[in-house]
Amino acid sequence: MNNPQKRAVVFAYHNVGVRCLKVLLAGGVDVALVVTHQDSATENIWFESVQSLCETEGIPFITPDDPKSPELLAQVQAAKPDLMFSFYYRNMLPQAILDVAPAFNMHGSLLPEYRGRAPTNWAVLHGASEAGASLHEMTAKPDAGAIVAQQAVPILPDDTAFEVFGKVTVAAELALYKVLPQLLAGTAPRTPNDLSKGGYFGGRKPEDGRIDWTQPAQQVYNLHRAVAPPYPGAFTDLGPRRYVIERARLYRGELAGHIAGLPPGLAVVDNAILGVCGDGRALLIHSLLADGLRISPAELKASL
């Protein structure tokens, strides 16, 4: 990647932020400033730290609370960037910042599919067979700018969102790595982002993991895969106790004789925990948590 050195301001967080920041450094980009987040004490931090990478590489970084503050705008302007990038930064950037220099965002889907928040989780929830990463021009409207680069990855039938996110992180690294020389040279392609296709999705809350056992088994399984740990998990309440599915598979054996007459919900059959669904099929639950502790089929049967 032999191009005249360009200065960049980078808004980054999470694994995608770390890997894409490393691509910029490998490509000879002068990262003048990184804007990232303070890790939240209330969140399960299972991902890599952009702040730690900046400390290792000696890159100036800040963690402002308000992306619309005049102070942040002044700091971005003072860095005099040629380019700006957003790699899984969680806040929308105001137009005043976008006006400082050409800005590009890395989104975790094959745009225009799954615009908005939590694209990997939504893709798994909807039973998609493919995910990916898209580098696109940033505009005031989220995930709407022209597409500069894309990289697809498969979603296998039993992949959890966590596993798919690992692939999406690699996809983001590959997409940026391949197009970076053209970006630095000002010759990167632009493909229109057709917003009449795909859809926009909002953020997900832990409560969205509540299981409706009357749904078909494939839908319940997709929910489990979409929110399986380290995400909050698909759950069901029985009396005062909340049960969270840690690991499960769609039961592909012949169940008619085993679950005939069983109502939708948790059941114990032949010392195995099943989640019986509305279409007469079931999930075979390999690990079920109650109060954070794994419970056995015998313990569940006693509480049922």
Score class of each variant (00 low, 15 high):
P4A: 09
P4M: 07
R7I: 14
V10N: 04
R19I: 13
R19A: 14
K22I: 00
V23K: 05
L24P: 08
V29C: 09
T36K: 09
H37C: 07
D39F: 11
D39R: 14
D39I: 07
F47C: 07
V50S: 01
Q51F: 01
S52N: 05
C54N: 01
E55G: 02
T56L: 11
I62S: 03
D65E: 13
E71G: 05
V76H: 10
Q77M: 12
R90Q: 12
M92L: 15
P94E: 00
A101N: 01
A118F: 12
A118T: 12
P119W: 07
E130N: 02
K141R: 11
L156D: 09
A161G: 05
K167F: 02
V168M: 01
Y177D: 15
V179R: 04
L180E: 06
L184T: 05
L184R: 01
A185V: 02
S196N: 14
S196M: 10
S196D: 14
G198S: 09
G198I: 11
P206M: 14
E207C: 03
G209A: 08
R210S: 12
Q215Y: 02
Q215P: 01
Q218H: 05
Y221F: 15
H224L: 09
P230L: 11
V244E: 07
V244K: 03
I245R: 08
R249G: 02
R249E: 09
G257W: 02
H258P: 00
P264R: 04
D270R: 11
V276D: 10
R281G: 03
R281K: 13
H286M: 11
S296A: 06
S296P: 02
P297E: 01
A298M: 06
A298K: 08
E299F: 03
K301N: 13
A302E: 13
